[in-house]
Design a binder for these strands. Structure first.
Lengths: 356, 356
DNA sequence: TCACGCGAGGCGAACGTTCGCTTTCCCGCG
DNA sequence: CGCGGGAAAGCGAACGTTCGCCTCGCGTGA
């Protein structure tokens, strides 16, 4: 039950008054600069702690022309991958003593008009973009102030923006190779949202692996699954309607794979005996599907850390090598949703290796 | 390839110079205050837009003594529930024109020493706490400046902090009642982290429902499952070792339920024929377990919205009715992991009602 | 003895705003 | 014709810092 307005914050002047020096001297002490007698230093420090002095970063930023704050523009953080990435970014920023201004955008992409101005008004030192849905938002890429350091975890329309992400082509390739090694020759794919860079890369990896092995990579082997489990279900159905002889499916992300798993079960097909399924992303939950999902682990957390690290380096005045693209390695996690291709009998069960 | 440091930001003085008035007049126009001739107003506005003027919120905050910024202290946002809640809070803050300073804390609870000062230095107008792991952090509750509006989504040790959360007791009660209605009489529970308020509330609801029905609620019917799927698996095993005649289990959250599901399958038990399972939280993924999980939906998003709304009301100077507790309603979602208790034959399959 | 140097601290300005008060000017009314 | 009043704009101060430069006084070397 607080009564009135908060009592005024204590400022450096208050501390100065209490220790009998000018406020500038106080400032010196509190930032470790200048030469101050040991006695007065101690007196000031004491006064500051007595009064519970908390420096005002607003004022400091005003004169320093930097806020030690990074703007974080993100999409939907219910997305497990994104939120891992955010966690990494946040932790790294914190480690380096930076604050984070958070804005998210609606799935439909609205919010750009709000997010950018909000960050600019607050004079953030740099911007970290982690919003897949705005990779083709031309306005954004255009509006983005070129003088402000920016790093993105997705490709940005205008180009020229530094990017940190996973090696998505490799991901597609690794997943597909795994299926090929298991003897599969007719391998379908459930893709993510068609237009996205991410989707294109994973698709490219998939095709590359097939080509390497001299195996068919027809267009009607890939079906767009979109973004969620339900999308995976209908995509798998459609794929199997067209090509019922498919023995393995590469899903562009784990949610699609979950959809595929449930759809297959509903159709009375056994996984992996009748059809192998491999996912991508390596969500925690993928370890607990039935059967546990073989997937390609994407280091979301590290992407966040690395992106933030790069951004802060740019902020600190490092070389603004615009448009540099960093790709982090991925790796396969073999569980039990994939197995050697069998003849008509479903005898061979155990997959090659296993991991958690 | 940007060359030097960013060219100075354009300030209200620059705009003033360009339109031939004093900067104070410019300020007047830009905030809509005071009386200014229509002609000059237009001229100033034009100049501002020509120059691409962006107001400096730091400076404004300095004189206004408010930042229009809320500090958000959160736990692990990989937690789907938490991240939904954050999404709600973010959206509501944005809607009301507030910015968000984000800090998260490590699972072990470290970070408090960092988070609070970081927020105070930046002079946030209020703090939204959404970090389950620090509900028993005495230091926090104590340190928390009583003059600063604070709302939390979990109980805070010191007390006196306004709280917005779900009606967790009701959740436990609803879930358990559902099982009772299905004819179950020996109902186990897999609890969350023992010490937590949340766990205690759900447990209380569970016991209340059992008592109402005059059914046994022995202590050895509840097993601590902790926080993740793996925890759910071992907890279920332990529970069934002790009481193998249990026909239904109430899990304190969906991850535990997933663990229970996989453990039951591994033990060769069918769900729901041999054992019904009901979860809690209503995560999206619960719709895609096998079988799809009956669960109690917790309105995480709304909790975020409501908490932020309340906080902003306090910030705006509304009554600081300290320690008020808001509990949002929950509701049952019936899927196929629960069914009527059967005799020894597993004939009755279809659950009462279904929903997605 | 005197100038010089240096340690300790103060002073003024600047950062980009908002806000209240004053000045100027013009118009209308008594 | 004089005066009050209101619209339009300017001015000064304040918010809480940092920073460069100045001043003071004391010890020291020539």
């Amino acid at each position: 039950m607080t009564v009135g307005r908060a009592s005024r914050h204590v400022s450096v002047k208050d501390v100065a008054a209490r220790s009998g020096v000018s406020f500038q001297t106080t400032s010196k002490v509190l930032n470790g600069g200048g030469s101050v007698a040991e006695a007065t230093r101690a007196r000031i420090l004491q006064a500051a702690s007595d009064l519970g002095y908390v420096p005002n970063l607003q004022a400091r930023s005003l004169v320093m022309q930097r806020t030690r704050t990074i703007g974080l523009i993100t999409g939907d953080f219910s997305d497990p991958g994104l939120s891992r990435c955010l966690a990494g970014a946040e932790q790294e920023a914190r480690r380096q003593g930076y604050g984070l201004m958070l804005t998210s955008m609606e799935p439909e992409g609205s919010g750009t008009e709000y997010a950018l101005p909000a960050m600019m008004e607050r004079r953030v030192d740099g911007i970290l973009l982690a919003a897949p849905q705005m990779e083709d938002d031309r306005a954004l890429g255009h509006v983005l102030d070129r003088t402000l350091p920016v790093v993105s975890t997705t490709h940005i329309a205008g180009g020229g923006v530094t990017t940190v992400s996973a090696d998505d082509e490799e991901a597609g390739q690794v997943a597909t190779r795994h299926l090929l090694e298991q003897g599969h020759r007719l391998i379908g794919a459930l893709s993510g949202v068609r237009g996205r860079r991410l989707t294109q890369s994973r698709l490219r990896g998939y095709r590359k692996a097939l080509d390497e092995a001299g195996v068919e990579s027809a267009n009607d082997l890939v079906e767009e699954g979109g973004v969620d489990v339900a999308g995976g279900q209908v995509a798998l159905r459609r794929l199997l309607e067209r090509r019922r002889d498919v023995t393995a499916v590469f899903c562009h992300h784990d949610l699609l794979a979950v959809g595929a798993l449930t759809a297959l079960r509903a159709m009375g097909k056994r996984v992996p005996e009748d059809c192998s399924v491999v996912g991508c992303d390596g969500l925690d939950s993928a370890a607990f599907t039935s059967p546990p999902l073989t997937t390609v682990r994407v280091p979301f957390y590290d992407i966040g850390v690395e992106a933030m690290r790069l951004l802060l380096r740019m902020v600190a005045g490092g070389p603004t090598d615009g448009g540099k693209d960093v790709a982090l390695p991925v790796h396969l996690i073999v569980r039990s949703s994939t197995a050697r291709r069998t003849g008509s009998d479903g005898s061979a069960r155990a997959p090659a290796r296993r991991a958690r």
